[in-house]
Write a protein that binds this DNA or RNA. Structure first.
Lengths: 206, 206
DNA sequence: AGACACATACAAACCAGTTGGTATGAAATC
DNA sequence: GATTTCATACCAACTGGTTTGTATGTGTCT
């Protein structure tokens, strides 16, 4: 099921190509022509479905949020009864995702996009923020439940820790890109796992 | 002392403009013309000093590494006798740097650049890696000393933890950009601080 | 006079977006 | 039920502006 598969609608193919190419080359580094070539459509088709490049970026952030949201929704870690196990399961899942994938395949479209356009396009920035926040809210809920059961008096907030998990993951991707080595990202996320374990097991310290 | 200050050499002005503009707009989003305008020089001057845009980027990474390296070298946190205090002082210093600064002024040139060009320009990627690693080595040394004194048996490695500090900081910048709020980066780095404290104070758990 | 440090003008490629069209199918009209 | 009408989904060529880079000129210092 390549991205040029004729059975996939043109609009979807363009969005899939956008996710891939932007993660590989950045937003400004990806031309509309290239996007069309990758999706196997012409420029006419592109401008039929999207008002312009920026509009595509906005739609792509929503597309990304849906696709990844669905992947997390069906992931195994939800099966654990203890919310702390679910939280640690989530972190393990983030590590699993890295395995056997190229960097561009496992890094975050939103993080890549927002770093490049956070000033030059507030519209894109807001769209990225919504996607990131949407996922962070899910994680915050997980953390809140784990906190309620295991560390109700802890000083740190669930929301803040949820954002921290996302920060670590985003930062892990940057280091992995610099080192051209996905495994380094896993190492960084394992530190996050240890941090969470310490937060829940050394409550006297917080 | 603006970047167009006539007393600063043209080449330096171009490099300073590059650091600023790339952090604001990204590499591909910054044109050579814009760079020249910002530095108050003409295109002739630009191509007199640099072979091209990519060559400038390489030199800019070295410039960045020197400038920031010097800033960290003279920072206060080195005064502490206990290496753990120096390490925590470093983290606090990273938080201090954020205060009163705009996002583009306090984020990392290398992280921004490498995320955009890690595939399309291996040369730039390597230059960014060298800068990041150079700083990480300094932090790794700090951590190694702290570990030797306070947690010699800990399972985590100094180098890995040093990279993790950089990952957290880079990721903090991405979230801050998405939220358009520098203070969120400080929150993320405070989690890093707590992680380090826990690592050194709950050694039985590791 | 010759080297260096720039400035100005220009070229060649590139890129987002436009224009003007075709093919197809569905709905309205006769 | 045949025909016209119209909207949708695309396609290919083109345009105007931008971008990196070059070629050549000019002033200055030694």
């Amino acid at each position: 099921m390549s991205v040029t598969d004729q059975s996939i609608p043109v609009k979807t193919r363009l969005l899939q190509s956008a996710l891939q190419l932007v993660r590989e080359q950045g937003y400004d580094g990806t031309t509309v022509d290239e996007l069309c070539r990758s999706a196997g459509v012409t420029k006419g088709a592109f401008f039929h479905y999207f008002e312009g490049k920026e509009a595509l970026a906005i739609v792509a952030t929503k597309f990304w949020t849906e696709v990844t949201g669905a992947a997390f929704a069906v992931a195994d870690y939800h099966k654990f009864e203890d919310p702390l196990d679910r939280l640690l399961g989530y972190v393990d899942f983030r590590i699993e995702i890295l395995e056997g994938r190229s960097l561009a395949e496992c890094t975050c479209f939103l993080g890549t996009l927002v770093q490049e356009k956070f000033i030059s396009s507030p519209t894109i920035r807001d769209a990225c923020l919504e996607g990131i926040d949407s996922h962070a809210r899910d994680i915050s809920k997980l953390i809140g439940e784990a906190k309620m059961r295991h560390a109700p008096l802890a000083v740190w907030g669930a929301e803040s820790l949820a954002l921290h998990t996302q920060a670590v993951i985003q930062g892990a991707f940057i280091l992995a890109k610099a080192k051209n080595d996905v495994t380094i990202a896993a190492d960084m996320i394992r530190h996050l796992r240890r941090y969470i374990e310490l937060l829940f097991h050394c409550t006297d310290e917080t």
